[in-house]
Amino acid sequence: MSIVAELLAKPGVLAAGEYAFRGDRFSYKGQMSEEHARMASIMCRATTMGVCMQGRMAEITRSGTGLHKPRGWLLHGADYSICVVANVFCFMRNDKGTVNAVVKHMRQALADVNMDLV
């Protein structure tokens, strides 16, 4: 079972997908149109690239901050959240237990993805 299918099977998850670190390719499953998934992949790629580069710059300023090579990020709105780890994104409702379960699953399943590719 792919990580995207595993995420989609979790309660509260609306859509999940993968994007290429470089280039425009993406794939997804869930309650989202193709065009919106394309937008989501562009947004998620840009923010992932941003946090990784900010981490590198922080490392130049001071080494050992723990900011270098982040695994991902999480955006929490009033009703929905987006979690991105490595090159996988997940859109979810803020149902009880959903965010913790998704972050835990993504961190474990994507622990070996090389973030140097960003």
């Binding site: 937008m39 982040p70 999480l74 955006l75």
Partner: peptide, 22 residues
């Protein structure tokens, strides 16, 4: 995103989380 998709409930962002290695 909300303006284009009409899917409300993300903005304004309440929390941003950076998931580091440790």
């Amino acid at each position: 995103w909300e303006a284009i998709t009409g899917m409300k409930g993300f903005f304004p962002v309440r929390e941003f989380t950076l998931v580091g290695f440790d």
